[in-house]
């Protein structure tokens, strides 16, 4: 009888450990930094709840497969005349699954000539990279591309 209950106990703790450990491992993998912000909050802070439309005018270039997530080149070009009446006011770049989705907020003026911005971002895992463009007419345009990451960059 004693031996049976002892074995039962071991099995129970084993099962409990198996249930707990994946969640522990997950929380260790995805810590939240002080700047953590999700995509919806970040977009709302910019648009104020207005709708965002996907547009061909916004061209986002990023590799489809990134071997190293620590350095992923991203470039955004917007088809815009960049005149005083009609220009791109801002380009925002988001990494949709990073703990802080915001990468860069670029404020442009007509003096730029063309609306373009390129940089290198860190991606924690495979995810969409998104560009949100604000024009002087008050439009919100977006473009997104999925990037597959084989080695994460936020480790």
């Amino acid at each position: 009888m004693q031996r049976r209950s002892f074995l039962k106990g071991i099995m129970m703790t084993g099962a409990a450990a198996a249930v707990v450990s994946p969640s522990l491992a997950f929380s260790a993998e995805a810590p939240k930094g002080p700047n953590a912000m999700d995509l919806d909050t970040a977009i709302k802070a910019i648009t104020g709840g207005k709708s965002v439309s996907a547009s061909d005018k916004v061209q986002l270039k990023a590799p489809e497969i990134a071997e190293n997530g620590a350095v992923v080149p991203v470039s955004v070009t917007v088809d815009s005349p960049m005149s005083a009446e009609d220009h791109v006011k801002a380009i925002h770049i988001f990494a949709t699954k990073n703990s802080n989705v915001r990468c860069a907020d670029v404020m442009l003026t007509p003096a730029n000539g063309t609306a373009s911005f390129s940089t290198r971002v860190k991606l924690g895992s495979s995810q969409d990279v998104m560009a949100l463009v604000v024009t002087s007419k008050g439009e919100f345009l977006s473009a997104a591309q999925n990037v597959k990451v084989t080695i994460g960059g936020c480790g």
Binding site: G33, N35, N100, C103, A104, V106, L108, A111, F117, T119
Partner: peptide, 21 residues
Amino acid sequence: FTTIKSWESLSTNPVYTISYK
């Protein structure tokens, strides 16, 4: 003519490229 706010998601040794007329 251009201001950029950036966050920690940019890579180590970052590059910022913009255009200028």
